Simulated scan of single mutants.
Amino acid sequence: MTGHRARLRERFLSGGPDGLPDYELLELLLCLAIPRRDVKPLAKELITRYGSYAGVLSADVDSLRAAPGLGDTAVAAIKTVQASALRLVKAGASEKPVMSNWSRVQEYLQGAMAHIPREQFRILFLDRKNTLLADVVMSDGTIDEAAVYPREVVRRALELDASALILVHNHPSGDPTPSRADIAMTKNIVETCDRIGIRVHDHIIVGRTGQASLKDLGLM
């Protein structure tokens, strides 16, 4: 087992992560948290359970704790890797005005929300130069609903002295196609924000493999 781990580590250090399939990358991570056990079967089981390496990293803490073979040390290691990756991408997304750095913002949103098993609604609050002021989770809901109210959006925007915002939520089904409820909610928030001079640039819906923009679709 020691020899296998050493070879796996050397392949990673010499060839980089692209040289390892998902289960081996996860195996390498689990080796650090579970030093005295063959974790290859566990890594494969987790990839199957959550669908991908990204799915494992994005899984809820409670869900990971319930997975056979994972203790708190391993769960903490998995979530630390996810948090580190998101902070790195978010730092890049915040370097420039959001609208001129859109690909990095989309990358961050995809990493943060694509694999959440319930609907989450967050808002990117922007200043007059469209630089990110705050990234706020407004609602963490159920498998198919995350309630958010226009008055709460406006209240938080005023607290932050925001001039504009971008609405974002995910579809746990994986399909980012806007629903009628999504369109109606967007219209209500846009109308409420317009009354006090706050611009809503877009509403982004995040799916498993892509995103939908209500602005690009002509729905706002």
Rank of each mutant, 00 (worst) to 15 (best):
R49F: 09
D62C: 07
G71E: 14
K40Y: 13
R11W: 00
A54V: 01
N188A: 15
P17E: 11
A54R: 12
Y149G: 00
A162F: 04
H4S: 15
L214P: 03
V153T: 04
C193P: 05
S173D: 15
H203E: 00
V190M: 09
T186V: 02
S58E: 11
P117E: 03
R104G: 02
L124Q: 06
V56R: 08
I196M: 12
D60R: 15
R49G: 02
D182H: 01
A54P: 00
M1F: 15
E10N: 08
P68W: 11
R151F: 09
G55Q: 10
I116T: 09
F125K: 03
M138I: 04
D175H: 04
L70M: 11
M99N: 02
S14E: 12
G174Q: 12
A181T: 14
S100P: 00
R36T: 13
A146D: 02
R151Q: 10
L64E: 06
G207S: 11
L214W: 12
D216C: 09
I204Y: 07
E95K: 15
T2W: 10
F121V: 01
D216V: 09
V206A: 00
G210M: 08
L86M: 10
G210D: 13
Q110V: 01
I166N: 04
L167W: 03
P178M: 04
N130F: 05
S14I: 08
S163K: 10
A83S: 11
D194E: 14
I123S: 02
E107L: 14
D202I: 08
I47A: 03
M99T: 10
L165R: 03
D62E: 15
N170A: 05
H115W: 15
R87A: 12
P35R: 02
Y108G: 01
K90L: 15
L64G: 07
L30K: 07
V153K: 02
A146M: 03
R37W: 02
R37S: 11
S163E: 12
I198E: 06
D140K: 04
D194S: 11
G69L: 08
I183W: 08
L217Q: 11
L167Q: 04
C193V: 11
N101L: 06
